[in-house]
Design a protein around this nucleic acid. Structure first.
Lengths: 208, 208
DNA sequence: CAAAATATTAAACATCTGTTTAAAATAGTT
DNA sequence: AACTATTTTAAACAGATGTTTAATATTTTG
């Protein structure tokens, strides 16, 4: 009865790496099997189909995708502090997982991928009370009036796009990896200053 | 001798639509053939292989990708004016071609896609003299000190990511297309204000 | 240990993949 | 008109694809 979890887990880990690197339609079941050192049939034995295995990986990737936001927004801090720390943590996390943002975008844009119930992930962010905190700050005129949609989008754009575009940037500016890292580090600082001074104009004026 | 250009062109147009919608590994030669109303063999008759046809489409997509920048930066305007008009034009163009940014990112991140000579496209932007104009403005202290890398990245992030993420946003915020469009229109205004006030702090202070 | 349940394997399956071939249709040339 | 070059077609190709099968090995249970 007690099954050896190591094979199932090994397949899942290999699948995660392969799917995130190449996307659903960019890889085969056999490639995942080989990467995990297992048989092709075992993949379907444990996960029934390529699609079901993918759905599993995708959801866990979405979890990671929103995890930093949930974690930072749950802390007991002022909004500018949360913003600064979030950007810091996002850049830190994405430096370790630079393929994640483009994977998420690629797969949410793939048709035939029906199960786009990303609302659950967003709800976790809402549950941190961050948007309530924003409304209150806006009432006290400590924060610029801005919708949830635009606020979320400003943050994600400036945190995720730099990592998604790293290969394009390398090609366009003729950079190698070792040149890219410090540039992204500088970019983090720009993004931090940019967003905080835009969202909290008075406070950032006082700080200067 | 005189060949009917219509079939070749029809295949290219179908290929463009299919490739951009589904990516290189997300579609088949037969799908492109069917979309153009032509035979499978004709695709290879005119373009030799799926890869060569793709390369053609990709390059033309990269052309479109950088076209707005080249066009706006070539005008005889001040930097804040160029910035404002660029954002305006980018949002206008991408509203008509929302799939383009994620296509470019997806394909520049696909390994086995060797030919990443995106430098040529970037050179066209450099040739507009925009970066020289920035250096001069920075010397006159009319513009914040910022590297080409970070400046380019700030602009592209805030213009392209909103369109790349539209399906994710729709899923996360439970929006439909008709709700998305006005939100993106508002976002354009935020991005414009955000970037101009950050890059040209003194001037935008005078304007207020 | 024997029986039952679970895990693993190699092989087969039907279909799809990119590409090629060789014949047929069409257009162009003399 | 006949001949040549070009375009289009259906069919075949070899290999890859997701998935299933049926037999074997291993573990768990009584």
């Amino acid at each position: 009865m007690k099954k050896d979890i190591s094979t199932e887990e090994r397949i899942k880990e290999a699948a995660r790496a392969v799917f995130i690197a190449k996307g659903f339609s960019g890889c085969s079941t056999r490639e995942i099997a080989k990467a995990s050192g297992m048989n092709v049939a075992l993949v379907n034995y444990y996960f029934r189909s390529k699609s079901q295995l993918f759905q599993l990986i995708f959801n866990s990737a979405m979890e990671d995708f929103t995890n930093t936001m949930v974690e930072v927004f749950s802390r007991d801090l002022t909004l500018p502090e949360k913003m600064r720390i979030l950007i810091e943590k996002e850049y830190e996390f994405l430096s370790q997982h630079p393929e994640l943002p483009s994977f998420i975008i690629q797969e949410t844009n793939r048709e035939s991928n029906i199960a786009h119930d990303n609302f659950g992930f967003f709800q976790k962010i809402v549950d941190t009370g961050i948007f309530q905190q924003c409304v209150e700050a806006q009432e006290r005129e400590e924060m610029r009036k801005i919708d949830i949609f635009n606020l979320t989008l400003l943050i994600i754009s400036n945190c995720h796009y730099p990592f998604m575009s790293r290969n394009m940037l390398k090609g366009m500016l003729k950079l190698n990896d070792s040149q890219l890292i410090p540039n992204i580090e500088i970019h983090k600082k720009h993004v931090s200053d940019l967003l905080i001074s835009y969202l909290f104009p008075k406070i950032s004026k006082n700080e200067e």
